[in-house]
Simulated assay, not measured.
Amino acid sequence: MDIWIIGGIIVLIVLLLVKGIPINFTKLIGQSAIKVTIGVLFLFFFNLFGASFGLHIPINIFTTVVVGILGIPGIASLTAIHLFIV
């Protein structure tokens, strides 16, 4: 079983070396990683400063993606959901 996994990884590496990595795919992955990182930082600082007002938004994959994509309006919408719905 392990030999098949190792063989598959070697074939994938050789294929990528011969054909090359698609630029659009790597650009999309890089931009998504940057947006998720920015979302985590926004949520961290919001929780840091919002603690004095009794506000807390949990840092999970859903809230991180929402804040990463929407930015400050994402934090505002999650705060409104927290205050009025939860």
Results as ranks from 00 to 15, higher is better:
residue 20 G to Y: 06
residue 64 T to L: 02
residue 64 T to H: 12
residue 61 I to E: 11
residue 52 S to F: 11
residue 64 T to M: 15
residue 61 I to W: 15
residue 18 V to L: 15
residue 36 V to P: 00
residue 37 T to A: 08
residue 31 Q to V: 09
residue 38 I to E: 14
residue 33 A to G: 11
residue 23 I to W: 10
residue 12 L to W: 08
residue 45 F to K: 08
residue 50 G to F: 02
residue 49 F to M: 08
residue 34 I to H: 00
residue 16 L to Q: 13
residue 20 G to I: 09
residue 28 L to T: 08
residue 31 Q to D: 13
residue 37 T to S: 06
residue 37 T to M: 13
residue 19 K to H: 12
residue 12 L to F: 15
residue 16 L to P: 01
residue 16 L to F: 12
residue 28 L to F: 06
residue 10 I to Q: 12
residue 44 F to W: 14
residue 37 T to F: 03
residue 45 F to V: 10
residue 51 A to H: 02
residue 46 F to T: 02
residue 47 N to H: 03
residue 24 N to T: 09
residue 36 V to E: 12
residue 42 F to P: 00
residue 46 F to G: 02
residue 44 F to A: 03
residue 14 V to T: 12
residue 56 H to S: 06
residue 60 N to A: 05
residue 54 G to K: 09
residue 13 I to K: 12
residue 18 V to A: 14
residue 26 T to Q: 07
residue 47 N to L: 01
residue 26 T to K: 11
residue 13 I to Y: 07
residue 37 T to E: 13
residue 43 L to H: 02
residue 38 I to T: 15
residue 61 I to N: 13
residue 52 S to Y: 03
residue 62 F to A: 07
residue 35 K to P: 01
residue 54 G to R: 07
residue 34 I to R: 10
residue 11 V to Y: 08
residue 9 I to S: 08
residue 25 F to K: 13
residue 14 V to K: 11
